[in-house]
Design a protein around this nucleic acid. Structure first.
Lengths: 345, 345
DNA sequence: TTGAAAGCGCTAACAG
DNA sequence: CTGTTAGCGCTTTCAA
């Protein structure tokens, strides 16, 4: 059963016939374009409603726009990204644009596939969140469609960027811990080898920010960085490594909340109390950092604002593709919770 | 600068010219369609590679398919959904189809907007995960595009379904707790009023499954259901309510992991130890249930398999739109962790 | 202000 | 097996 014959879609021709005008007129009304009298607009609008007409985006795209914005998120599991997405959808809610997300990407190859798929579908603009692709690829993408890169530093004339100042975020954590009386503050970073990305990716900047802040607080001699990956397992292993040190740290700054989760697990396993024996801080202020059971001190990146700014820049660029590129940098804030306290309490 | 003039896209005509064949020939090669000699195929493929040609999905969609599958997830924050998504993308990886996600939807209106947007973009098929829309709307959608509904019971001739047997999941939890020696097992449900959805939505079925299982274990007199919402706050409030009861339960079955998180928070606040004083179980086996710090007993829905099945059914239906609808039901499994133990220990 | 007509890139139907 | 032709639904000249 199930209506084997899907009823033919209502097209612009049906609307034109119903309203007794030309398709051109209907098109003008759809796009709020110049050259249609108020009476005609009203008449056309009525027909559109009566017939339940909705324009076919693919067909529109062949000549004009598809009114579609693509968003690429690296990992849908990371609870930080929904914040950005909320900011994006909220800003786009009252426009005609529709957002679609690429599926979780990990690695340059997956990113290439998704970005190409977006371009092939005629999307009017794309927002890339924390992409790992080479700058060359990003610029190639930006050459064929308006693009905004979010959560990654590195200005380019080809695309706009919106990012959090990770140096500052790292400094907030180190400052907070130092103020509590910690000196031996260790850091677990996500290892980065690619030379281009080294300066642009948040993980690298957090590690640098940590080093810089330690020096600024006169704690240079206690700088201790463990290389791992931004995963729970990475945090677990990194914490193990720290525990094996002859002089144990009194605080650990994990480069991401998910890393902090692994750290907490390792400490619990080792019978250490947090923050009694050792303090732990994360980064991203993810949903589970806020869970009462965990209550992790973290850094909030204002994801919502990031998303909102990204949309603003993107719409501007869709309007004027040759305007000079813009870089927006937002300041993170510290969210102290129960995993950090005075040392040796 | 940023290349103010985006280079014209390579079209099928360019490829045809380069390979010295007709556009029809190129089209056939693209679609692996019948009627092209191996030599011609090779020649065309070479030209495609040399020119870096990629077909324009919108244009294809005007006559044939767009090779695009839309997936609607209700809430990107719920860590259960990525599992389904992984199953979907994994099954689609080696096909020409590309997945795009609708942005997080809450409520019927948002769902309507997203499903319509997908149809307007000529998507070849759509997968709706735990939609809250009325059955009528779902059938309207399914009438214009092949559709699979995931995570919601309720067979329809218009679409296929893939769901977990929530009765069974609830029974697993009750059985587990009963076997540990619990009798006073309470349940926190997500309140459902809509009569149509009542029988189809997972939350309602979990509550029913709980009641049924309690009876089956001879614990009918201890049935105790608190109505809340599937949120952390809902769990917190629900737990408060349970604590105010004259006879306290020794175990709580929360309808979802996120609810269990709120429950745990309330119990911690009340100075109760888990599972010493009271056991807690959730549902969905989300990422944070597995976190060492939380270690929540939960029910695993085999999201990956759900996604894989959804894709299989969808591709089948894209091939043959009039084949009778299919319902796939998967069995959940219990994942016992540290939040459940013997009562009164 | 209005509409006729061309064409976006591709596929399907058909003829050779 | 191969190519010609006619659209798909819309926007965009451009002439009236």
């Amino acid at each position: 059963m199930g209506l084997p014959v899907p009823p033919r879609r209502v097209t612009i021709i049906d609307v034109a016939r119903h309203a007794q005008v030309s398709t051109t007129a209907v098109s003008k009304v759809l796009r709020n374009a110049y050259g249609a009298s108020p009476e005609m607009r009203a008449k056309v609008r009525r027909s559109i409603d009566e017939l339940g007409y909705r324009p076919h985006a693919g067909a529109r795209g062949l000549r004009g726009q598809t009114y579609t914005i693509g968003v690429m998120l690296p990992d849908i599991r990371n609870p930080f990204f929904p914040e950005i997405l909320d900011g994006i959808t909220a800003s786009l809610e009252d426009t005609e644009y529709q957002v679609f997300l690429g599926p979780g990407c990990n690695g340059e190859q997956a990113e290439a596939r998704v970005t190409e798929a977006m371009i092939d579908r005629g999307m009017d603009g794309i927002i890339l969140v924390a992409p790992v692709s080479s700058r060359a690829h990003l610029e190639r993408v930006a050459a064929s469609v308006p693009t905004v890169v979010v959560g990654r530093q590195g200005a380019s004339p080809a695309y706009d960027t919106v990012a959090d100042e990770d140096y500052e975020g790292a400094a907030l954590v180190v400052g907070h811990l130092a103020r509590l009386g910690h000196r031996r503050i260790a850091h677990i970073e996500h290892h980065e080898t690619d030379p281009t990305r080294l300066a642009e990716m948040p993980n690298a900047r957090r590690a640098d920010g940590y080093r810089q802040a330690m020096r600024a607080h006169g704690l240079a001699e206690w700088i201790d960085v463990v290389s791992a990956t931004y995963t729970q397992e990475g945090g677990y292993q990194g914490a193990k490594e720290l525990l094996a040190r002859p002089r144990r740290s009194t605080a650990v700054f994990a480069g991401a909340d998910i890393v902090a989760m692994g750290v907490l697990e390792a400490f619990t396993e080792a019978g250490l109390s947090v923050p009694g024996d050792i303090s732990v801080a994360g980064y991203d202020n993810t949903t589970f950092a806020a869970l009462g059971q965990i209550s992790l001190t973290s850094v909030d990146q204002a994801g919502h604002e990031m998303g909102g700014n990204a949309v603003r820049l993107l719409l501007e660029r869709i309007t004027d593709r040759r305007r000079p590129s813009v870089q927006v940098t937002l300041s993170p804030t510290l969210v102290p919770r129960r995993t950090t306290g005075r040392p040796g309490e």
